[in-house]
Computed example of a mutant assay.
Amino acid sequence: MIAMWDVDFSLALRNRTGKYFIGRDIIRDNADRIASVRYGRFRRAPGSELRAPDGLRRSLIERGSDAEIALRQRLPSGVAGLRARRPVLHLDPYTVRLYRTGPRDLVLCHDMGPLTHRELFDDRVCRLYDEAYRQIAETKPGMVFVSRASRDAYVELFGPLPRMEVIYPPLRPELAAAAPAPVEEVRAPFLLTVGSIGRRKNQAAAIRAFAASGLAQRGYRYVLCGAREPGADEVARLAAATEGVVLLSYVSDAQLSWLYRNAAGFVLVSLLEGFGVPVAEAIAAGLVPLVARDSVLEEVAGDGAFSADPLDEAEIARMMRQLVELEPEPRAARQAALARSIARFTPTAFRDNWSAALAPAMAGIDA
């Protein structure tokens, strides 16, 4: 088969969250269609694509790419950008600023947060993504979104593109295969939140809601785990000062599997999500989640989830109590509905959909 795509995986230099795993799986599943993987102006040869540069080389590539993008902020879209012989798959929209993009290229969008929720991001990040999306609107590459919510947000801001599709991320098979390993700091019963710790995920409001719920006095704990991002310091201070709250650092897949299997319920009332993989993971482990109302998390979970206004801490507290007090029969009905919803997120569906997205015809090449 013809190797017809170059892939820009620059996000791997600074990101090890869900974005990284999605990009990694796309490259692994479609290796026969990928000619090279780029990290800024650094290119990996076929067969070594997923070994991102590290150490000094990584630092130099990051700084060089940042400087080049900063320069392009003063230039019209695409001027003097990298010109690739093959179509380029961008695994994050910001890298389009390094290239001369066109209709043969393809851009993966994880969320529209820097434009729809500017208050949650640094001004420089908002400007960068604003310029990237304007370049996309002007040069019209194809776009793949991880949710309908992100696609609709793009269309509302910039209008439709000739090629737009939604491909949901898969549940990670590594997590399903991991043998559960207990977390020493945690004792049941507990509610669980998984996701980057910071303002965007709204854990501070969830902690205050847990305190107001009275569940700590009934013996419940509230366990949170995830990487740190802006706003994590406030969450850490609240966690330390609130009875029953356990804020974990990094946990392994084995420990995460144990947490999912032993929690009394799952809570994620984010202000912004691109998709919300932890909600799907929790459902797969048999948990009923409490999610942010009118968000992509409802798109992921479906009708079986509880929901609350993420800005209403009293409602979050009330729904936390309902979550732990759920009787067996209605719990089973919700679990059945939730299981049907996440049947969309299989590795097979992800692999097949991306294979179709990267087919020769989509790259403008005769098969």
Score class of each variant (00 low, 15 high):
Arg200Gln: 12
Asp309Pro: 05
Pro330Tyr: 06
Val245Asn: 11
Arg14Gln: 13
Gly244Trp: 06
Gly55Pro: 05
Ser48Gly: 10
Gly304Ile: 07
Glu281Val: 10
Ala3Leu: 10
Asp54Asn: 14
Ala361Glu: 15
Val88Ala: 07
Phe9Met: 13
Arg72His: 15
Val235Leu: 12
Ala241Thr: 11
Ala301Arg: 06
Leu50Trp: 03
Ala149Trp: 02
Cys109Gly: 00
Ile34Asn: 05
Ala359Asp: 13
Ala367Leu: 09
Phe21Gly: 00
Tyr20Lys: 08
Val107Asn: 01
Phe350Gln: 03
Phe145His: 05
Met319Arg: 15
Ala280Glu: 10
Leu268Phe: 02
Ile61Gln: 05
Leu358Thr: 06
Asp122Ser: 12
Glu229His: 03
Ala333Trp: 00
Arg344Lys: 14
Leu82Asp: 11
Arg148Glu: 15
Leu358Tyr: 05
Gly226Cys: 05
Leu192Gly: 08
Ser252Met: 06
Ala333Leu: 11
Ala337Ile: 02
Met319Tyr: 01
Glu156Arg: 15
His90Thr: 01
Ala3Gln: 14
Arg334His: 06
Leu247Tyr: 10
Glu156Pro: 00
Ala239Cys: 09
Arg74Trp: 13
Ala80Arg: 14
Leu287Arg: 09
His117Glu: 13
Leu238Phe: 07
Leu161Pro: 03
Gly81Phe: 08
Gly244Asp: 11
Cys225Val: 10
Ser295Asn: 07
Asp105Glu: 05
Val296Thr: 15
Val245Lys: 11
Gly304His: 10
Leu215Gly: 10
Arg28His: 01
